[in-house]
Design a protein around this nucleic acid. Structure first.
Lengths: 224, 224
DNA sequence: GTTGCCATTAGCCAAAAGTCGAACGCCAGT
DNA sequence: ACTGGCGTTCGACTTTTGGCTAATGGCAAC
């Protein structure tokens, strides 16, 4: 392949810029695809199945925790995905790798660290921040099950589930997606079956198993 | 006061025993009240408003994260409460103190550490594990709001909310509490108003802001 | 080209969820 | 002793949810 294609999924424009610059200084003929929401992310990965790398933010609006990672990994198993997050907890990093991430880049990294990481993962390596031990890699069984179930969802089903877990009514989801409420109900019924639950509250709980708690607290902490 | 009263809330009998022994070796005339569930905890704190200390496990079945702490602190503001948890993350400890805990004791503490901690908090001090920095103490605004709202709930409302966040149906909650479904609905409506939400999905999300993620992962990690 | 899966929609129905008003008891303040 | 507020309880009513069947069109695999 001649050009390198990288998808950047992050809702913060400034951070997308920073990542873009870092990538361009690693490979000069890089094609950058940007996504700032779940729908644009789904568009990006499905219209660019040939991409070489996905940089995925953990805190995308409308996507909870590792669910997007589980989903993307299942649907595009050849696309190396690196989690980019402010929550650079060791536990979070381990979970990311367990869910199929090819690496983890902390948002508090320096430019040179960023570039090292990008180079490493473009070269096919697994990259994690310095000093992180990734030998102990077994995650919670319930969490693994939840991820497996969620990764089986179709694009629409996944999107509906994410909106459901925002507390929206069927009617609201239907309106936002521009389809009828009957369609949403059909999707939700299918989601319930795949998640093995019978109501939306339990669906929310299943998704929450992939949550990352209190990212804001971690964004304040690193200066310590 | 002549005798010292301590309430121990933990669902694990062996750990309650260990805590009991540790307390008795600190003060010999201690009166120990045990609780192993939310209802017995509520009983304990309301029938012993004069207690000197509450040792509260973070992983009580049927109580999610810091919600029990927020609730107890509001309803019994003179009762010093210490969180006892296996998740001895620095972020978790900070959040505990922010929600009004008088200290934090790690479940992986040695016996002597346990006793030091108990002595300290019985003496009115704030006690946290060695090496934890508690100067940086501002927590997430949404989390604080959620805690404030939850702490305004009445005992019944709180209990119903916790059962709701387990994914139970109104009917199931009603049966378990021995009242009619109409009563549960009334409670839930009151809860919605106080939490400023319109349906149970949003209520679950509000409560989840006080969650502690993946305690199981933290129980596996410390051997590293 | 047929078979299967996905998305879409409708219509129906039972169950669950949620709101309202009303009754009762309790407790604090006057 | 009276009164106002709050918590608990409950039944009646409306809305939402969820399960079911069935039909359509698109798209990809075989």
């Amino acid at each position: 392949m001649s050009t390198t294609t990288v998808i950047i999924a992050d809702d913060h424009p400034l951070f997308r810029d920073a990542l873009t610059h870092a990538i361009r200084s690693c490979v000069d003929d890089a094609r950058i695809i940007e996504a700032d929401s779940l729908s644009t992310l789904q568009d990006a990965v499905s219209t660019h199945p040939d991409a070489d790398l996905l940089l995925l933010d953990l805190n995308m609006p409308g996507v909870s925790g590792f669910s997007a990672l589980a989903y993307v990994r299942q649907h595009h198993d050849t696309l190396p995905t690196v989690i980019v997050s402010a929550a650079d907890d060791e536990a979070v990093i381990r979970r990311a790798l367990q869910h199929g991430a090819s690496g983890f880049i902390s948002k508090s990294s320096s430019i040179s660290e960023l570039e090292s990481g990008i180079n490493a993962v473009l070269g096919g390596e697994v990259w994690v921040p310095d000093g992180i031990d990734i030998t102990n890699t077994d995650i919670d069984q319930d969490e693994r099950q939840a991820a497996a179930a969620i990764s089986q969802l179709t694009p629409h089903q996944f999107r509906v589930l994410m909106m459901l877990t925002e507390g929206l009514l069927n009617k609201q989801i239907a309106y936002q997606l521009g389809v009828s409420e009957a369609t949403i109900k059909a999707h939700i019924t299918a989601v319930f079956r795949k998640l093995n639950v019978n109501n939306r509250t339990q669906a929310v709980l299943a998704v929450q198993q992939l949550a990352v708690t209190d990212p804001a607290a971690l964004e304040r902490a690193p200066k310590a």
